[in-house]
């Protein structure tokens, strides 16, 4: 094979593989951008128990307008801890924002390690502490505006 044909074919290969790489890249982005896996599963957000850790099946609770936390069985999130009150705290959606309220519990509710004394706005990633339990809040901001 002569050298000119070789160079031509190699340049062709370089150009085509470069364009091919870019097209494949954008194809991946397009497909994953359209069907965002996290979005439909999470709804408006969810609460994850971080401590004490459960092996793989993390305790996950999707947020709804009112989420109650406490030792009593009727709570959205049941806390199996003697430090927790029966109705300990709740998370409510008001005016497009999530608030954390302590329901006059005996031992108090911590937000990021500090005990709260009044209703406090929650933000994505906040850590809610009740007794020895720690919950991490995940908010889905895309869906919040609606």
């Amino acid at each position: 094979m002569n050298i000119e044909l070789t160079i031509f074919l190699l340049r062709l290969l370089a150009g085509l593989s470069l364009v091919g790489f870019l097209l494949a890249l954008f194809a991946v982005i397009w497909r994953q951008g359209v069907q965002h896996p996290a979005a439909d599963r999470a709804g408006q957000g969810f609460l994850v128990r971080e401590q004490p850790t459960l092996a793989e099946d993390e305790l996950r609770c999707s947020l709804r307008p009112i989420v109650t936390l406490g030792r009593a069985a009727g709570n959205t999130v049941v806390i199996n801890d003697d430090f927790a009150s029966a109705s300990h705290a709740r998370i409510v959606l008001e005016g497009g924002r999530w608030w954390l309220e302590d329901r006059e519990s005996r031992n108090g509710t911590q937000l990021n390690g500090e005990t709260i004394h009044r209703r406090t706005i929650l933000a994505d990633g906040d850590e809610i502490g009740i007794g020895k339990y720690r919950y991490r809040l995940h908010l889905n901001q895309e869906n919040m505006a609606s």
């Binding site: 933000a123 990633g125 895309e142």
Partner: peptide
């Protein structure tokens, strides 16, 4: 905590 608006 970064919110999605600033990240965008």
């Amino acid at each position: 905590m970064p919110d999605s608006r600033t990240i965008r």
